[in-house]
């Protein structure tokens, strides 16, 4: 494992933990898109089915288990435990516009036409756009809490670091997975606008707010 891959995983893990703690400590999921979190739970579930078929390493298995478990915990907090604080009125992105096209695409463009492989491909495509309901919610309300901004930054930079990891792996291991690379590029591009706001506002101590 190279340094970019490792830092990517750490930042992904940090994002998940930041979100869990934010909701748990404040007893509120205000400003968080339940739809994005639901999509991430679907992403992890469909991608990590190989937990039952393949063993790669202790690291690999434990990270997958943590990702899956925490995504379900987050969804549970939003839709059950702290339901009263969930801002459903602003979480209006139509997720079928993400799920249906990515599902169709995963049947058309995949490495192998088998159930596990198609589900893995679907999860890669869906992950690349799963943050859109959250970004839509931020743009709709025009602001995000600083802790939510940190969450979004950690989550965005994770796939960006994976891009460097793939350049590294292509260079030194002649390994590349075009499906993951193209989806990772799409995913990173979606965050660019947010990265700009994060660097110019949040890192300077200001709250993230969009011009009206």
């Amino acid at each position: 494992m190279n340094i970019f891959r490792f830092l990517g995983d750490i930042s992904h893990l940090s994002a998940i933990i930041i979100l869990l703690l934010k909701i748990w400590k404040s007893r509120s999921c205000a400003g968080i898109s339940g739809k994005s979190q639901l999509l991430f739970a679907i992403v992890f579930t469909t991608r990590y089915l190989d937990l039952f078929t393949n063993f790669i390493s202790f690291y690999n298995t434990s990270m997958k288990v943590v990702y899956v478990a925490s995504s379900y915990a987050t969804v549970w907090m939003i839709y059950s435990k702290f339901k009263a604080t969930y801002d459903g009125n602003h979480d209006t992105f139509r997720v079928e516009f993400l799920i249906v096209p990515t599902a169709i695409l995963s049947f058309l463009v995949n490495h192998d036409f088998t159930p596990l492989e198609i589900l893995w491909t679907f999860s890669i495509y869906l992950e690349s756009v799963a943050i859109l309901p959250q970004l839509f919610m931020v743009s709709k309300t025009g602001e995000a809490e600083t802790i939510t901004s940190h969450y979004l930054f950690a989550l965005g930079i994770y796939r960006t670091l994976y891009l460097f990891n793939w350049i590294w792996r292509y260079q030194f291991e002649e390994f590349f997975d075009l499906i993951a690379i193209v989806a990772g590029l799409v995913q990173t591009v979606l965050y660019c606008d947010f990265f700009y706001l994060y660097i110019t506002k949040v890192l300077k101590g200001k709250k993230l707010s969009l011009p009206a």
Partner: peptide
């Protein structure tokens, strides 16, 4: 047939 890439990433 080409092997599908190893899923060692997360």
């Amino acid at each position: 047939e080409e092997e599908t890439p190893l899923k060692d990433e997360l």
